[in-house]
Measured scan of single mutants.
Amino acid sequence: MALNTPQITPTKKITVRAIGEELPRGDYQRCPQCDMLFSLPEINSHQSAYCPRCQAKIRDGRDWSLTRLAAMAFTMLLLMPFAWGEPLLHIWLLGIRIDANVMQGIWQMTKQGDAITGSMVFFCVIGAPLILVTSIAYLWFGNRLGMNLRPVLLMLERLKEWVMLDIYLVGIGVASIKVQDYAHIQAGVGLFSFVALVILTTVTLSHLNVEELWERFYPQRPATRRDEKLRVCLGCHFTGYPDQRGRCPRCHIPLRLRRRHSLQKCWAALLASIVLLLPANLLPISIIYLNGGRQEDTILSGIMSLASSNIAVAGIVFIASILVPFTKVIVMFTLLLSIHFKCQQGLRTRILLLRMVTWIGRWSMLDLFVISLTMSLINRDQILAFTMGPAAFYFGAAVILTILAVEWLDSRLLWDAHESGNARFDD
C-alpha cells in the first residue's frame, strides 16, 4: 500500500549564491595573561575582544583620537594649579581661619623630617597626573615632529594605576569627618577644581587605549598563520617573532617567553612588605597634641575612634588600611606557593584573586592621604596640633611594595603550573 505524501511548494523562490571570495581570516594573537594562541577576527570600533580561555580583555573598544586626548590633557593642565594650590577646605580653629590644600599637606610631611613619605604622596597625587598630561601632550606634538614615541607609550600603561586623584578625593571626605570634632569646616574653591580634575582624569584614563596608539604610530604586520613560536610582548602586546637582537619589532624591548626574574622580584617585594606591615600596624601612625597632652593612634585605634562619629567612614578606612593590605599579602603568598608547588586545582579562583588584588591594591594609600591633609588643617603649635607617627613611612612603603609585587608577577606562570593543553579552566 503506497502512502500519498503531499508536496510542499515554497511560496518564495530560494536563491543560492556561491561564495565568490575567501572568507576573511583572523590574525593570530597570544593572550598576555595566559599565553593562549588564538585567531582574533577583525574588530570594529566600539567592540571589545576577550581571550577565549581566561576571559582577559585583549582589545578595548573604547578609543579616543589623539586630538581629543590632547584637549583633555590641556584642560587638566589648566585645572591643576587651582586643584593643588587653592584651598580645598576652610576650618575655623580657636577663632582663626585655616586653609588646607594639597601642596601644603605634602610640605608639612616633608617639613617634619619625613621627606620619603611626603614624596610618596607627591608622586601619586601630583607627579603621576602631571606625567600623564605631559605624556599625552608629548605624543600629540611628537607625532607631528617625527619624534620617538616608544618610551612614552611604554610608560603610559604602567602609569595608570599610580594616578590616585580619586583616592585622594575620598581622603578629603575622611579628613573632614575627623577634623569636624575640633573645628567648623567649609569647602574651599580649590575643592571644585579638584573634583573637576578627578572627573576629567577618570574619563581620560578610561578612554586612553595605549594598544590602539601603538597600532597608529607603529603598525606591524600581524601573524596570519598559526605558529607556536609566536611570542607576545608584555610592553606593547604585539604578537610576532623577535628581531635579530631578540627584541620586539614594535617597542624594541627584549621579547622573552616569560617575564625575567618574575618570581624572585615578586618574592622579594612580598617578604619586604610583610616585614614592614608589622611596625606599620604596631607603631603610632598619627599623633595629636591637645592642650599640651599627647595622644597617639595606631591604624586600628584611629579607626575605632573614627567609628564613634561615623561608622560608615570608619568601615571604608578599615577596608583600605587593614583589610586590603593583608588580603593582598595572603593572596600573593598563596599564588606564589601554588606556582612553586605546581598546583593544578582552583586555577579559576587564583586568576580571579590576582585580578582582584590588581584592582584594589592602590586604595591602601588612602590613610597616607588623610594624614597629609589633616596635617595641613590642624597645626596650632602646642594648643592643638596633628602630626604623623613613625608607622606612616612603614605603611606607605608596604603598600608600594605590594603594588610592585602584583605588577611583577607574570600571570602566565600560573598556567605553566597548571596542566598543559587546557582550553578551559575551572575549579
Rank of each mutant, 00 (worst) to 15 (best):
M1K: 01
L3D: 10
L3Q: 11
Q7Y: 08
Q7R: 09
I14N: 13
V16C: 12
G20W: 08
E21K: 09
E22R: 09
D27F: 11
Y28H: 13
Y28W: 11
R30A: 13
D35C: 07
P41Y: 11
P41I: 14
E42T: 08
E42N: 09
S45Y: 15
S45M: 13
S48Y: 15
K57D: 05
I58M: 13
G61P: 12
D63I: 15
D63M: 15
W64H: 11
S65N: 13
L69A: 15
L69Y: 15
A73T: 13
M76A: 03
M76E: 04
F82G: 06
A83L: 05
W84N: 15
W84S: 07
G85I: 03
E86T: 07
L88S: 03
L89H: 09
I91N: 05
I98S: 08
D99R: 11
A100C: 10
N101Y: 02
N101G: 05
Q104I: 05
I106D: 01
I106F: 10
W107Q: 14
Q108T: 12
T110N: 15
K111R: 14
I116F: 03
T117A: 09
T134Y: 04
I136C: 04
F141V: 14
N143C: 14
R144P: 01
P151K: 01
M155R: 01
E157T: 14
R158A: 13
L159I: 03
K160S: 08
E161W: 03
W162K: 01
I167S: 04
G171P: 00
G173N: 01
V174T: 06
A175I: 02
A175L: 01
V179C: 14
A187P: 10
A187V: 07
G190L: 02
L191F: 11
F194L: 12
A196M: 14
V203I: 15
T204L: 08
L205I: 15
L208H: 05
N209G: 10
E211D: 13
E212I: 15
E215Y: 12
E215C: 07
Q220S: 07
A223K: 07
D227Y: 13
E228C: 06
K229R: 07
R231S: 05
C236E: 00
F238K: 14
G240Q: 08
G240H: 07
Y241V: 06
P242F: 06
D243Y: 04
R258V: 04
R258G: 02
R259T: 08
R259Y: 06
R260A: 03
L263W: 05
A269C: 03
L270K: 13
L276E: 05
A280E: 04
P284Q: 14
P284T: 05
I285W: 00
N291M: 08
T298Y: 06
S301W: 15
I303K: 00
S305I: 14
A307S: 05
V317P: 00
V317D: 00
I319C: 15
A320W: 00
I322G: 14
L323N: 03
P325N: 05
F326T: 11
V331W: 14
F333A: 08
L336R: 00
L337Y: 15
L337T: 12
S338M: 14
I339Y: 11
H340K: 08
L347V: 14
R348N: 12
T349V: 14
I351L: 11
R355P: 05
M356W: 09
R362A: 07
D367A: 00
F369N: 03
I383H: 02
F386H: 00
G389W: 00
P390Q: 08
Y394D: 06
F395Q: 02
F395S: 03
A397M: 05
T402C: 08
L404N: 11
A405F: 11
V406S: 05
L409G: 03
D410L: 00
S411I: 10
R412F: 00
G421T: 14
N422D: 12
R424Q: 12
D426E: 08
